[in-house]
Computed example of a mutant assay.
Amino acid sequence: MRLNLFLVEVALAGSLLAFGSAAPAQPAAAGAPPVPLAGPPTNAPNAPSPANAAQVPKPGDPYAAFFPSPKNTPFFRPDQIPWKTNGEGLLEYNLFGNPREPGPYAVLLKWLPGHYSTPHYHPNARYAVVISGTWWTSTSNVQDVTKTYPLGPGTVVTDVIGTVHWDGARDEPVVLMLMGDGPSPNVKVDKNGKPLGAVEF
């Protein structure tokens, strides 16, 4: 239950970021103890930190005087994210956890134009937020990229446990924030929706 609530909170935050807005902060109840923030666990070596964030104001930045200290708020700009290749046509940036290992995780995935997964399902639920681009998806057991449905930025998606789907990018890159509880492999299926025995991450 706690993981599901955390994933919903992260998904909503991601959709708000995609729209460029933020929800107003809610004041704490009088006398209430501080509530720990749900953030990345300590096993998040790729997350922005004072040691790896290339954080300086851009030339001519009119807000340079207010630039946040990297000791307090390290960040990566979109062009600084250290993507790693995850197969042909797919890039991955691990925010925290690992979808290949037990426990909660969150990753950014960048689908390159023309890349699609094949029909598959997951043994655990997965939650996605479309950050940029248009994500094309289908729930058919047969792959036909001309018969996919477009999901734009800010869309929040759930891959229900054990249900077949596949997705990809057409003529532009697509960035997703993907969350869940690992391990969460893709179990490929045939045209009848039966497992092929092929598992990939």
Rank of each mutant, 00 (worst) to 15 (best):
residue 46 N to M: 15
residue 187 V to K: 04
residue 15 S to D: 06
residue 92 E to M: 12
residue 19 F to I: 00
residue 138 S to M: 01
residue 103 G to E: 08
residue 103 G to R: 01
residue 175 V to E: 03
residue 153 P to D: 12
residue 16 L to S: 10
residue 17 L to K: 14
residue 157 V to E: 04
residue 147 K to E: 13
residue 103 G to Q: 07
residue 6 F to K: 15
residue 21 S to H: 12
residue 48 P to T: 01
residue 127 Y to R: 05
residue 149 Y to H: 15
residue 191 K to P: 07
residue 146 T to P: 04
residue 6 F to V: 13
residue 46 N to W: 15
residue 148 T to K: 06
residue 45 P to D: 01
residue 119 P to E: 04
residue 201 F to L: 07
residue 25 A to W: 05
residue 42 T to A: 15
residue 27 P to G: 06
residue 124 N to D: 02
residue 139 T to V: 05
residue 67 F to I: 08
residue 198 A to L: 14
residue 115 H to T: 02
residue 132 S to K: 06
residue 109 L to H: 09
residue 199 V to S: 08
residue 106 A to P: 12
residue 48 P to C: 09
residue 151 L to I: 10
residue 49 S to I: 13
residue 160 V to Q: 12
residue 173 P to D: 10
residue 189 V to P: 01
residue 161 I to Y: 08
residue 93 Y to C: 04
residue 148 T to V: 13
residue 162 G to C: 02
residue 145 V to L: 07
residue 89 G to A: 05
residue 130 V to T: 01
residue 76 F to T: 06
residue 167 D to K: 00
residue 193 G to Y: 03
residue 90 L to Q: 05
residue 102 P to R: 04
residue 193 G to I: 07
residue 134 T to S: 06
residue 197 G to L: 10
residue 36 P to G: 03
residue 200 E to G: 12
residue 132 S to I: 02
residue 48 P to W: 06
residue 125 A to S: 09
residue 69 S to K: 10
residue 113 P to S: 04
residue 57 P to H: 07
residue 89 G to W: 04
residue 200 E to F: 14
residue 92 E to S: 09
residue 68 P to K: 04
residue 195 P to M: 15
residue 122 H to I: 03
residue 62 P to R: 15
residue 38 A to N: 15
residue 37 L to Q: 15
residue 93 Y to E: 06
residue 42 T to F: 14
residue 188 K to S: 14
residue 24 P to T: 03
residue 44 A to Y: 08
residue 181 D to N: 12
residue 85 T to K: 10
residue 175 V to T: 10
residue 139 T to W: 11
residue 84 K to L: 11
residue 112 L to Y: 04
residue 185 P to V: 09
residue 25 A to D: 12
residue 10 V to M: 14
residue 114 G to D: 01
residue 83 W to R: 03
residue 139 T to M: 06
residue 59 P to S: 02
residue 58 K to T: 11
residue 154 G to H: 07
residue 189 V to Q: 01
residue 177 M to S: 12
residue 32 A to R: 10
residue 10 V to D: 11
residue 160 V to A: 14
residue 186 N to Y: 04
residue 94 N to A: 01
residue 193 G to E: 07
residue 74 P to H: 00
residue 2 R to C: 13
residue 129 V to L: 01
residue 195 P to L: 14
residue 72 N to Q: 11
residue 124 N to K: 11
residue 74 P to E: 03
residue 91 L to C: 08
residue 137 T to P: 01
residue 36 P to N: 03
residue 169 A to Y: 07
residue 63 Y to L: 14
residue 46 N to F: 15
residue 129 V to Y: 01
residue 159 D to W: 09
residue 120 H to W: 02
residue 117 S to T: 15
residue 37 L to E: 13
residue 25 A to C: 10
residue 64 A to G: 11
residue 67 F to A: 09
residue 14 G to L: 01
residue 143 Q to Y: 05
residue 192 N to I: 02
residue 178 L to Y: 03
residue 119 P to G: 00
residue 69 S to A: 09
residue 90 L to P: 08
residue 97 G to Q: 00
residue 109 L to F: 11
residue 112 L to I: 02
residue 38 A to R: 15
residue 157 V to S: 00
residue 166 W to K: 02
residue 67 F to E: 11
residue 167 D to N: 09
residue 31 G to R: 10
residue 101 E to Q: 12
residue 32 A to C: 08
residue 78 P to L: 08
